[in-house]
Each structure stands twice: as structure tokens, then as C-alpha cells.
């Protein structure tokens, strides 16, 4: 792979990681937390819930 290719690839990977993390925080985490709660794993669920952000989180600028 050319030098340009490597840098470009790196940038793409970072972007993907960023979106994936965001997606997880906004959507994945609450679902996972609810699932854990149902299974009775309260402390784990709470830890995840603490990290979860409501999907807006300043995204569109809720006033």
C-alpha cells in the first residue's frame, strides 16, 4: 500500500471507530443495560447506564 493509502486507511479507521463508539453510547448501551437488568445483573447494568448518553447530547443543539 502506498504511503497515501496508509494514511487514508488510518483516517477511515478512526472515523469508523468514532461513529461506532457514538452509536454504542447512544443506542447500544441503553439496550444492553436493559437486557442486563432483566437478567438480574443490576450492578453491571448500572455501570453501563452511567456511561450511556441520551441520543441527543448536544448533537442537534436542543435548547
Amino acid at each position: 500500500m502506498s504511503e497515501q493509502g496508509m494514511i487514508a486507511g488510518f483516517i477511515v479507521a478512526v472515523a469508523t471507530g468514532f461513529l461506532a463508539k457514538r452509536f454504542y453510547r447512544s443506542y447500544g448501551a441503553p439496550i444492553l443495560a436493559d437486557f442486563l437488568l432483566k437478567r438480574g445483573k443490576v450492578s453491571a447494568a448500572m455501570k453501563i447506564r452511567g456511561k450511556a448518553k441520551p441520543a441527543c447530547g448536544g448533537d442537534c443543539g436542543c435548547d
Binding site: V12, A15, C60, G61
Partner: peptide, 21 residues
């Protein structure tokens, strides 16, 4: 000022990431 910042931040993060992908 808040609106401006929010717009630019959104463009520079989410939209940028989606565009790269």
C-alpha cells in the same frame, strides 16, 4: 453563538465521520 458552535461541531464530527466512511 451557541447555535453556530453546535452546527460546526456537528459538521466536524458526525458529518465528517460519515462522509469519510
Amino acid at each position: 453563538r451557541d447555535r453556530c458552535w453546535i452546527f460546526i461541531r456537528r459538521a466536524g464530527t458526525v458529518i465528517l465521520a460519515i462522509t469519510i466512511i
